[in-house]
Design a protein around this nucleic acid. Sequence first.
DNA 1: CTTTCTTATGAGAATGATTCTCCTTTAATA
DNA 2: TATTAAAGGAGAATCATTCTCATAAGAAAG
Lengths: 143, 143
Amino acid sequence: MKNNEIRNKLIEKGLKVTPQRMAILEAIIKLNNHPTAENIIDYIRKNHPNISTATVYKVLDALAEKGLIKKVKTEKDVMRYDAFLEKHHHLYASDSDRIEDYLDDELNEILEKHFEKKCIPGFKIEDLKLQIIGKFTDKNAPK
Amino acid sequence: MKNNEIRNKLIEKGLKVTPQRMAILEAIIKLNNHPTAENIIDYIRKNHPNISTATVYKVLDALAEKGLIKKVKTEKDVMRYDAFLEKHHHLYASDSDRIEDYLDDELNEILEKHFEKKCIPGFKIEDLKLQIIGKFTDKNAPK
DNA sequence: CTTTCTTATGAGAATGATTCTCCTTTAATA
DNA sequence: TATTAAAGGAGAATCATTCTCATAAGAAAG
């Protein structure tokens, strides 16, 4: 992804373009396995040694609020970030911190159909996220 | 739930019976809307003013490990506890901290059937949890 | 290209849930 | 009741995240 594409994403969302924001958005796209804020900070400090943690957290919140990234939460306690924006679910390793995206349009359809039929009284559904917990049986990321 | 029932639950799981453990398990059953550790501590300190936070956390972990309670995580950052042990999913309010249990055997079946057919290469599923995010349209808990 | 104004950034302190340390107490069992 | 491994208590420590507030830097206009 070129600098200009990143710049345009920021502009599109009405976010002021700064070197910090460029670096953070680039980092989260490069580090494409749901990095933590710490992963992102480490990555960015290679080229940008003085960036402050507070800035990173603020920028991540701003990006998430504008829909440029998503926040994902582990079973543990750390927020993770995801630049993959299509509707998707997550595979969580029960024995490590690994998280993978899981796309399944058929599943989305099934869920949608189910909740069309079966309304939940007193509740208006906005989003459905399936957490698929288990063990990875190989070392490579299934998509 | 009588004291003896609680005592027996602990014994069944091979946990030493202590007043602290009794109080904590009782509290989490009484406070049945997914209390936080803090909620539990406040409740217990009414009758048991000197219990230490460390003890509460340790006991909660022990109970969860033995399957006497479950841990639930908010979108925010705080662990919640649940004494309701049947397979169920959760409704999360997008505009508050409210969480409700959601039972739906038909949904469980559909999900199970879907993942029987559609295996995920390189992944062995152990559990499926649907996070249903949205808004509560009344003040009462739907079950 | 400078001014102005608003917004973003940086450094470090603060927060807050959870965990750790280490010492004391207690439940279970003989 | 004595023994002993396990549990509890007090408070410090941890660590991700947020706050504070002074400084810097975009954007827009002149």
